[in-house]
Design a protein around this nucleic acid. Structure first.
Lengths: 113, 113
DNA sequence: CTGGATCCCTATCGATACTG
DNA sequence: CAGTATCGATAGGGATCCAG
């Protein structure tokens, strides 16, 4: 009934990789982070668009999280020099890769809920 | 150079699943959580064994996290009625499945570090 | 050995208001 | 539109001591 589990894989990863994996989890595990990334994966690329597509997210927390995600290399901030200035947020290749790597979680929640 | 990315997968998962996935990430994303699960995956099953195998982890935080993980269904607390009482912690099937689902993260960190 | 109880500090977060 | 500034509440977490 449950999935085949290859727990032994975690015996093989060295401690440095685990440390980095933990760091990644601490970033995407913060409140709003995954919602923001998901909204962006689904096409939202403007501050306001992301803000309204994540329920109960305040502009303050969106700004904070976007800075964190940008710092982590997951999101790119693109300024378009128009009048007034336009700003777009896009997932980097790294961000898209992370989202893809997070995909099995969806399978997990489907199995256990 | 980068991995093939199937971002579109996230278009298919419904909002409820995403909400639950976010919840899971918030649990394992907390400090110490992933380290504790990893230590258990590697065989530590006693309070003290887990405590010493995760660097800088205090007994207080271990107790707190173990309760959270137990409540989340990832860890089982087994009391052995000896004198004095022995306690063992084991990953549940759900916990092992989650760790397996987290496995791609190791690949991600390997690619981007 | 397996934690629980306290104390106390800090980081985080929500609400609200404001701006180029 | 895309944020910043400020404030007050609360939760998280480290240190320490204690107990069955």
């Amino acid at each position: 009934m449950t999935t085949p589990v290859k727990l032994s894989d975690w015996q093989r990863v060295d401690d440095e990789e685990c440390r980095q994996a933990a760091q990644v989890l601490e970033i995407v595990g913060k409140r709003w982070s995954s919602g923001i990334l998901l909204a962006m994966a689904r096409g939202a690329d403007r501050f306001t668009a992301i803000n309204t597509s994540v329920r109960d997210l305040t502009s303050r927390m969106l700004a904070v999280r976007l800075r964190e995600l940008e710092h982590a290399g997951l999101v790119d901030r693109v300024v378009i020099p128009t009048m007034p200035v336009g700003v777009r947020y896009r997932l980097t290749a790294q961000g898209r890769d992370l989202l893809a790597s997070l995909q099995p979680i969806a399978g997990y929640t489907h199995r256990w809920n």
